[in-house]
C-alpha cells in the first residue's frame, strides 16, 4: 500500500501572544491524508485554518502538537522541499526582478543547472503567457500577472507535490480555467495537488477529494462526488422534449411517487458562458488569449467538460 504524500495526525497550532499566553487555536487536532496523484481541496471560511495548515505543511510554522509527514519526511527536510512546489495566496515576489530572473533565481535554489533552468524558464514563460513581459520588473505587474509568475515559480522544479493557496485569486475567468486545466493535467501526470480556494466552484471542478475546516477542526472529508451526491433524488436529462410531453411525464411521475416533481431547463454556468463569449471574440479578432499552449501542457491537453443546454427533469422524494 502506498504511503500518503501528506499525512497529519492530531495536528494543533496555537498562536500565542508576546507573554506566551494562548491567543488563538488555529488548527485543532487535524487528521488528514492526501494520496499520491490526488487533487485535494481544502475548504473553509475565513479564519478556518486553511492557510495555517498549509504553512504547517511547508514548515513555515511549527505545530504546537501532532505530527506532519510530507512526502514521507518532516516538513523542514531539505529532500522533501526539493519535491514541493508552492504558490502562496499572495505571490510576494521580488519587485525588482523580471519574471525571467525570478524563475532563474528559484530554479537555482533548487540546484538546477543553468541549461535546465533556462529551458524550464522559457517553457514556463510561454505557459503563463508572459514572454512579452519577461524583461519587465515584476513590481510593474498587475495582480493577475504577478500571480502567473508565482504559478510558474511553483512549477520550476517539476514538483511531485504542488501546494496552491488560492491559486485562482486575482485571475480572470479565462486564466482561472487554464489554471484548473493545468491542475488536472498535473494530476494526470502523477503529481499530487493540495489546493485551497474560497471559490467553491473551482475546487469542485478539479478536486478528487475535499476537506472542509471550521474553527481549525475537520468538519467533513471525502470524495467530491460522494459528498455532493443526493441518493434520495433522481434527475433525468432529455433532449428535444416538447412541453406537452414533459408535462405529461411530470404528472405521471407525481401520480406514481406521490411527491412533487420539478421540471425546468438547465442553464449553463456563467464561467462556461463567459469562456464561450471570449473564445468567439478571440476567434473573430484572430487573437489568442492568456495561457499559450506550451510544450509540457500540449502533450496531455484535455478539453474541459462543457455542459450542453438540455431539458432536465428531477424527481425529489419528500423527506
Amino acid at each position: 500500500m502506498n504511503s500518503p504524500i501528506i499525512e497529519t495526525t492530531g495536528l494543533c497550532k496555537v498562536f500565542r501572544d508576546f507573554w506566551q499566553r494562548p491567543k488563538v487555536e488555529a488548527v485543532a487536532g487535524l487528521d488528514l491524508q492526501v494520496q499520491r496523484g490526488e487533487i485535494f481541496g481544502l475548504l473553509g471560511p475565513n479564519g478556518s485554518g486553511k492557510s495555517t495548515t498549509i504553512k504547517l505543511l511547508l514548515g513555515l510554522l511549527h505545530p504546537t502538537a501532532g505530527t506532519i509527514r510530507v512526502l514521507g519526511c518532516p516538513p523542514t527536510d531539505v529532500a522533501a522541499k526539493a519535491r514541493i512546489g508552492y504558490l502562496p495566496e499572495v505571490s510576494h515576489l521580488h519587485a525588482f526582478l523580471t519574471p525571467r530572473e525570478t524563475l532563474h533565481y528559484y530554479g537555482s535554489l533548487f540546484g538546477l543547472d543553468a541549461g535546465t533552468c533556462r529551458e524550464r524558464t522559457e517553457a514556463l514563460l510561454d505557459m503563463v503567457d508572459l514572454r512579452h513581459a519577461a524583461n519587465r520588473s515584476v513590481g510593474e505587474f498587475s495582480k493577475g500577472m504577478a500571480r502567473r509568475v508565482g504559478l510558474a515559480q511553483a512549477l520550476i522544479n517539476n514538483p511531485d507535490l504542488l501546494i496552491l493557496d488560492e491559486p485562482t485569486s486575482g485571475l480572470d475567468p479565462v486564466a482561472c480555467r487554464e489554471v484548473k486545466d493545468l491542475v488536472r493535467l498535473l494530476a494526470k501526470a502523477g503529481k499530487t495537488v493540495l489546493m485551497t480556494s474560497h471559490l467553491l466552484a473551482d475546487v469542485e471542478d478539479v478536486s478528487d477529494r475535499v476537506a472542509i475546516l471550521h474553527a481549525g477542526r475537520l468538519q467533513a472529508e471525502g470524495r467530491v462526488a460522494d459528498l455532493l451526491r443526493r441518493p434520495d433524488a433522481v434527475r433525468f436529462l432529455v433532449e428535444g422534449l416538447d412541453a406537452e410531453t414533459a408535462d405529461a411525464i411530470r404528472r405521471d411521475l407525481e401520480q406514481r411517487t406521490h411527491h412533487a416533481v420539478v421540471l425546468d431547463h438547465p442553464a449553463m454556468d456563467l464561467e462556461t458562458y463567459f469562456l464561450q463569449v471570449v473564445a468567439r471574440a478571440a476567434h473573430r479578432d484572430h487573437l489568442t488569449t492568456h495561457f499559450q499552449p506550451a510544450a509540457f501542457l500540449a502533450a496531455a491537453k484535455e478539453k474541459p467538460e462543457v455542459r450542453d443546454q438540455k431539458s432536465e427533469v428531477s424527481s425529489q422524494q419528500a423527506d
Binding site: K55, L58, G59, L60, V78, A79, K81, A82, I84, Y86, P88, V90, S91, H92, L93, H94, Y106, L109, F110, G111, Q153
Partner: peptide, 14 residues
C-alpha cells in the same frame, strides 16, 4: 516581515 522569505524558505536551500 514582507513575507517574501516564505517562497525562499520552502525551497531546498539550507
Amino acid at each position: 516581515d514582507s513575507r517574501r522569505m516564505d517562497l525562499t524558505a520552502v525551497k531546498p536551500a539550507h
